[in-house]
């Protein structure tokens, strides 16, 4: 029998840390890169996260929402979030002035299995804004290139204007130690010389060997079904395919139940799951 006293816990998951908006760097017409720095230098110094983890951003008076952290896990002086303005909070966010103070809780959840993929080949598959939580993983591989095997990146966006981190994409494309391919769903402006079609067309452009290979996948819900089918064809086992799931989240710590997928909390057990884990959960993908 548990008694109230055992409910006590030193971790208060509802503690907010204040951070300052350092700058906003536009990415696409509706998506910006936001750089933040904790007001308390001590907290900033201690701030660490695993690529793929998320953080809860509060603009008091407007609300709180979860966002995948987007910067390199090796960067210590600040951190980045890349956010598309699609809702109440994000619309307020894009109009904030630099030096505005917001609140953060977290980071929370399980990110990409960076330890497990050490020394292995990695295939990264991102669709649209789904590239955001993958970027810290990519940056970590690039910054510690010797720790990992082959890096293959497949990225799809709706149209060329919606490609994120365009400068970096260019660099990735030109590195010999990265195989990078991209596609766009459509090119109405005729400014794109690359592949056209959804992200799965890239499976014809790239040769993925299933041996010692892990796939890290993030994109819109509709994308998973098709990408998973392709990965299965290649022969990648389910426990080496990792997905980041998106769900409505309020608390971030397994209390509010909005993000339940089967018996898993996306906020605590995820947002990154292996496909093997997810397969057992109904309605996950």
């Amino acid at each position: 029998m548990t008694y109230p006293v055992s409910l006590r816990h030193e971790k208060n998951a509802y503690q907010y840390n204040k951070a300052r908006l350092v700058r906003i760097t536009p990415q696409t017409p509706d998506t910006n890169l936001y750089t933040f720095e904790y007001v308390d230098p001590g907290i900033q110094k201690q701030f660490t996260f695993t690529p793929g983890q998320f953080i809860l951003l509060s603009i008091f008076g407007y609300g709180e929402a979860p966002f995948g952290i987007c910067s390199s896990p090796n960067k210590t002086d600040s951190f980045d979030l890349c956010i598309r303005s699609v809702g109440k909070l994000t619309n307020v966010l894009q109009n904030l002035n630099p030096d505005s103070v917001v609140g953060f809780r977290g980071p929370f959840g399980h990110g990409w299995p960076m330890d497990e993929v050490k020394g292995k080949n990695i295939v990264i598959i991102g669709g649209g804004i789904g590239l955001v939580p993958l970027r810290p993983a990519i940056l970590d591989v690039i910054e510690n290139r010797d720790n990992y095997g082959k890096l293959q990146i497949m990225y799809g966006a709706r149209c060329p204007e919606e490609l994120l981190f365009k400068d970096e994409l260019y660099l990735w494309g030109n590195r010999r130690d990265i195989e990078y391919v991209a596609t766009v769903d459509r090119d109405d402006e005729h400014c794109w010389a690359g592949n056209i079609g959804v992200v799965t067309v890239l499976f014809d452009r790239i040769n993925i060997s299933p041996k010692d290979t892990y796939a890290l996948v993030c994109g819109p819900p509709i994308m998973y079904k098709f990408v998973l089918r392709e990965l299965e064809k290649i022969g990648l086992p389910d426990d080496r395919v990792f997905l980041s799931l998106e769900r409505r989240m309020k608390c971030g710590v397994g209390h509010c139940s909005h993000c339940l997928v089967g018996s898993k909390f996306v906020c605590q057990d995820g947002p990154v799951f292996s496909y093997a884990e997810v397969k057992a959960q109904r309605g996950a993908v």
Partner: peptide, 8 residues
């Protein structure tokens, strides 16, 4: 039941 929503 214990689900909750959060609003400012």
């Amino acid at each position: 039941c214990f689900c909750f929503d959060v609003k400012d």
